[in-house]
Design a protein around this nucleic acid. Structure first.
Lengths: 265, 265
DNA sequence: CGCCTATTTGACCTTTCTCAATAGATGTGG
DNA sequence: CCACATCTATTGAGAAAGGTCAAATAGGCG
């Protein structure tokens, strides 16, 4: 998983679901793909299209967005190493638009490659299936986010999730989350209005939980944010990860927060 | 698919994803299972449990419910023929409670059976995978329902979805949807308060879109309900089904409603 | 019949939305 | 490097959808 390997984030991601054999790494190294750079808000795929390739995100963010409705609700957000449309290998229908958030680098990989993988490496194929199922678990959690938390908690939860997923592929280790998101896009993801998103972010700043400058969200109080959001990363199906090196670690090990901290360990 | 076959709804459900060979039917007939009857609000499975079996719903409804929060948000609803926890064959974590809504008949099927199926019948296994992916697509749609529709549209959409899914397995053909749901449960599914759910249902009744008597919702104006909800069943991945024999078919074949009607055909 | 649960209604409150205007940032061509 | 155009962030004020609380009514079932 050298830095030079273009699919290293993807390898990291897969490795969260089971160690990669050297055979598996060889297979990944031979993955046919064409790499493209896109600007912000580029639609990689539109509802109704018949896909023949998957999109492996190498850098930046992608999201699934509902093309209807003025405010273009965002259904899910994806980080480097993700293949947001991996499921299309087995279900050729696309219900939403796949859109870049900020500039992004994307590898296009033919469905055929993933289909052949089933025979070449059942283990790897199993890990891929698990990635699909994790996206499903994340969608279920997203339902809860937009339906049972208030605006402040929603935004906090989304940021916790992004930070955690980025850390799982070696990014945002210092809790500085790259954020090409406009406040309107954040609002579309949290299902609130842009104006309210603005006020919500101001409150998060006022509470000294985070800063948001020059396209970067800096989480200044991880445990506070986790507590506010009620964030429990179990649904992300990540193995134990490094302790968060954030300010203000929990003081009492017997609280709720400690349980969450343990789950992050 | 005789009425006597206990898994006939399941067979119907699978058949929506590809014709079932007689070999497949033989396999299904040999499916090991133990059948149980449950009362309302029985928790078949709780968050954190390690599942070894799947639950095939034979009669009634099941839902995934978030055990946290006073109002117990409902994440998804399942109809006969569904296996709500089919995904646990490949992902042993359970994030929510699996609960009956009204009395239900459930067959418990060991994971082992589905695992062996992969080798015995790749075709059948493929259909099962597609059922998992449809649940995922339904979750994504549920996000939209609770995040971008108002209360009236949400309730209407949920009822459209239930009716459509029931019809796909031979139930509710006359648009009479069995409803053991309390208004509070409907509210938990639509992410509104019980009081507001009540007022919303009253408005649907006042608009002559439906009746709700003696544990049955009778849809009296299917096209009106579809139009109000903005219901497009594409995400359910159902093959063409019979024309709805409801009152007030669309008058102009060129409208939006006609497009939706076609998709229902 | 009486209890328990579910539904319905009214009154009031809160969150969030919408509209509109201003200010700041970013980017582009001259 | 400036001036303009455009997009994004911020602020204020009023409105609307839906939530909460509390009480009354209506069903269903032993």
């Amino acid at each position: 998983m050298q830095a030079g390997f273009p699919f290293s984030r993807f390898a990291d991601r897969l490795a969260t679901q089971g160690a990669l054999s050297s055979d598996s790494l060889d297979l990944l190294a031979k993955m046919p793909s064409s790499i493209s750079h896109y600007g912000s808000r580029h639609h990689l795929m539109q509802r109704g299209e018949l896909p023949t390739h998957c999109h492996l995100l190498l850098q930046g963010y992608l999201c699934w967005q509902d093309p209807d409705g003025r405010d273009g609700r965002i259904i899910s957000i994806h980080v480097p190493g993700d293949v947001p449309d991996l499921y299309t290998v087995h279900d050729l229908q696309v219900d939403y638009d796949l859109v870049t958030v900020g500039p992004a680098v994307v590898a296009s990989v033919p469905h055929r490659f993933f289909r052949e993988l089933a025979e070449l490496s059942p283990t790897l194929w199993r890990s891929l299936l698990r990635l699909i199922l994790i996206d499903a678990a994340t969608s279920r959690n997203w339902i809860l986010n937009v339906s049972s938390r208030d605006a402040l908690e929603r935004v906090a939860h989304l940021i916790c999730e992004l930070a955690t997923r980025l850390r799982a592929v070696g990014l945002a280790r210092d809790l500085r989350v790259p954020s090409p998101f406009t406040q309107s896009e954040l609002a579309a993801a949290c299902s609130i209005s842009a104006v309210h998103a603005n006020r919500t972010i101001q409150e998060l700043r006022r509470s000294s939980l985070l800063q948001w400058h020059s396209k970067t969200i800096t989480i200044t109080n991880w445990y506070g944010l986790v507590r506010l959001a009620g964030f429990n990363p179990a649904y992300l199906r990540l193995p134990a990860i490094d302790e968060v090196e954030a300010a203000e670690p929990p003081t009492a090990r017997s609280t709720e927060a400690a349980v969450i901290a343990d789950s992050l360990r």
